[in-house]
Design a protein around this nucleic acid. Structure first.
Lengths: 224, 224
DNA sequence: CGTCATTTTGAAGACTGTCAACGCGCGTGG
DNA sequence: CCACGCGCGTTGACAGTCTTCAAAATGACG
């Protein structure tokens, strides 16, 4: 529900592509890319800018967002090391991308990939697969934003983040409360209050404001 | 190369020009598909069912949705004649699909398309493009659900529907208020009240509950 | 140790949801 | 032909959640 889980092996098999081929594709991405460092809060690309590159997070964290005319902000996704972002089929980016913390990304020329896809069905399918994963994620987010309470949104966010971290019960949040709020369609105050409430109920621990430990996953999952 | 093709597909592809190629692809879809009628509220496919077919609406209207455990429903999208739905990269459908009114859809075997895509880069790109268009729409929906008021949601829905109908200011809604509510993340009462309020402000006319005329697009668009 | 950004907490208010009743259109059957 | 039931839509009153506005607390950093 956050950015993308690493490609599930079953997807790869369903695609009729062997894991080794997939590894080969991801590996060749590394070779085609150029490492670019970005300071905290630095823009990687802007909304409506031409989409010349696809990116892979090497280190740090990235958020994508759109701004509405009156300043309201919706965050599209958070990307952690290993995640790919910025892949568009249209000419321009629909969201802006920024480094959340000091970040290194690998930038790969889009034209290189689309040229490859012209002659290589495996590459074409990989590109499609990336877009499809993005779609899955946004669909989950849509359900979350359309049909759940503040507590459910925060719980869902924490569980997803936990599942993506090494220790599946301890999270180091790279993003601020404001980022979380704009991701979940809430205000910063509601997010903060929900964190506090969860801590009082012993569902989580908050050693620091950026570190969360899950104490009761099942209770987190349930409604209310 | 698989022969899906009516007249000289290779020529069309060689031309490398988008509109004509696109027409060729869409036209060939028609030939590959089987027409299937579905009565009002009939299920076309269920959530988590294997995704064996891709569909194109010929007549009527279709909605996709997911149900949460406690009965809350989120509608993913509405599909009108000409729209394609049910294209998945994974093995199964993430949403259910149902006929809103009496509907005819064209069902195309997914395996046919993916086989074609193996050998034909243009087909591969078309499939990717369909997923990308779906992504665009869901991203818009995400912004809507995350960051806007009931009035903005209803206004956005009406403008979207109007732009899809023949007369861009007159809409025949195939779906119920409940469907609209579950699409916009609202309750049926809020949707109904918002319609009424817009009518009082002369933003719209409601000749019947299923027919809407836009009277002031610009006022509809603005915040509040 | 002071400053600034971030986070937390508090109180009041707005918006949407909930529950309930009523109205409307339409097909069925007496 | 009209009464009735039924699905759907509208309206009202009230409650609850989340937002807004405000201020205090915490933490990072020079």
């Amino acid at each position: 529900m956050l950015a993308y889980a690493p490609p599930a092996p079953s997807d790869i098999r369903a695609a009729g592509v062997l894991p080794s081929v997939k590894q080969g594709f991801e590996a060749s991405l590394e070779l085609m890319g150029i490492k670019m460092p970005h300071a905290r809060n630095e823009e990687i690309y802007g909304q409506d800018e031409p989409a010349g590159y696809v990116y892979k997070v090497v280190k740090g964290a990235v958020r994508t967002h759109t701004l509405l005319d009156d300043g309201r902000r919706q965050i599209g996704a958070f990307y952690l090391p290993g995640d790919i972002f910025g892949l568009e089929l249209g000419a321009s980016h629909r969201f802006s991308a920024e480094a959340i913390s000091d970040t290194v990304v690998l930038a790969i020329k889009r034209s290189t990939l689309t040229a490859l896809a012209q002659s290589d069905a495996v590459v074409a399918r990989e590109l499609w697969l990336m877009t499809a994963r993005e779609l899955d994620h946004v669909q989950d987010q849509m359900i979350l934003l359309g049909r759940s309470s503040a507590k459910e949104r925060v719980a869902s966010f924490l569980i997803e983040m936990a599942d993506r971290s090494k220790d599946r019960n301890e999270i180091d949040l790279p993003m601020s409360r404001q980022d979380i709020a704009d991701y979940l369609g809430l205000t910063i105050e509601t997010v903060s209050r929900t964190f506090s409430s969860m801590e009082r109920k012993a569902l989580i621990e908050l050693p620091t404001s950026r570190k969360v430990r899950l104490r009761n996953r099942t209770a987190l999952r349930c409604r209310h």
